[in-house]
Simulated scan of single mutants.
Amino acid sequence: MAPVAIQPLYTATATANGGRNGRVRSDNGTLDMALSMPKSLGGAEATGATNPEQLFAAGYSACFESALRLVAGQMKKQLKDAHVTAKVTIGKTQAGGFGLAVALHGKLPGLSQGEADDLMHAAHKVCPYSLATKDNIEVKLSSEVA
């Protein structure tokens, strides 16, 4: 399937140096972080450092919550204090390489469980991260309303 063409609205730029044990910095300097390999992957997991999976989880959760708020507004549903947690897992594939899996969990107080589930699925259809990962990695959705 051919990639979907977009009309650019914003481009983020970041440069990594040193890979998983290096540093990543955005072009405007707002993001400037040390990277460290997690212990579970054989690294030292340095204090104060992050890793690509944490950065992806942060971006996905923020983008997904924005999509959730968009679809909630379209469906005339009030989101009081919504939270979205993304868990990004790296692991070995059957082909011998590495792959990712994501679990997105929405905490949506004030809604019924059915409404929360519907919003999560609707957001998954419009979130740019969800669209970018569609049919590429496993993404599991869950929600709670309490």
Rank of each mutant, 00 (worst) to 15 (best):
L108T: 02
T85E: 00
K76R: 12
L100S: 06
G96F: 08
V139G: 00
A123S: 00
T85F: 02
Q113C: 10
Q94D: 12
K107S: 15
M75Q: 15
A122G: 06
S130W: 02
A123T: 01
E138A: 14
V88G: 00
A72K: 11
A101W: 04
G91T: 07
D135L: 10
S142N: 13
T85I: 04
S130C: 08
D118M: 14
D135V: 12
M120D: 02
I90R: 03
H105A: 14
K87C: 00
F98G: 08
K80R: 15
I90A: 00
K80Y: 13
A82W: 10
K140E: 10
L108N: 11
A95P: 10
A132Y: 08
L79D: 04
T85A: 12
N136V: 03
A101E: 06
K134M: 11
Q94R: 11
K80D: 13
E115H: 07
A116I: 07
I137S: 11
T85W: 00
I137M: 09
D118H: 15
L108Y: 05
L79M: 06
F98K: 11
G73R: 01
G97A: 04
T89G: 03
S130P: 09
N136I: 01
I137V: 11
K134C: 01
L79E: 02
M120I: 09
G114Q: 12
K77R: 15
G96E: 09
H121P: 12
K134D: 12
T85Q: 13
A103P: 03
C127N: 01
A72H: 05
E138T: 14
T93K: 05
T85S: 06
Y129Q: 11
K76I: 04
Q94L: 14
V84N: 06
L119Y: 02
L104T: 01
H105T: 08
V126W: 10
G91I: 05
N136L: 02
M120R: 00
T133Q: 06
K140C: 10
A123F: 00
K92A: 09
A72W: 07
T133V: 15
V139D: 02
G91S: 05
A95E: 08
S112V: 09
I90G: 08
E138C: 14
L119P: 08
G114W: 06
Q78R: 07
A123L: 02
L119N: 05
D117T: 14
A132N: 12
G110W: 11
K87P: 07
C127E: 09
G106W: 04
G99C: 01
V139E: 06
A82C: 11
E115Q: 05
M75N: 14
S142I: 15
N136D: 04
A116G: 13
K77Y: 04
D118A: 15
K107D: 15
H121Q: 14
K87R: 06
P128K: 05
G96W: 01
D81L: 14
L111A: 11
G97M: 11
I90V: 02
K77A: 13
M75K: 15
E115P: 04
A72S: 07
L104K: 01
L100W: 09
K77I: 02
A122R: 03
A72T: 10
K76P: 10
V139K: 08
D81G: 15
V139Y: 06
M120S: 10
H124T: 08
T93E: 06
D81Q: 15
L131D: 13
P109F: 11
F98R: 00
H83N: 14
Q94S: 13
H105M: 13
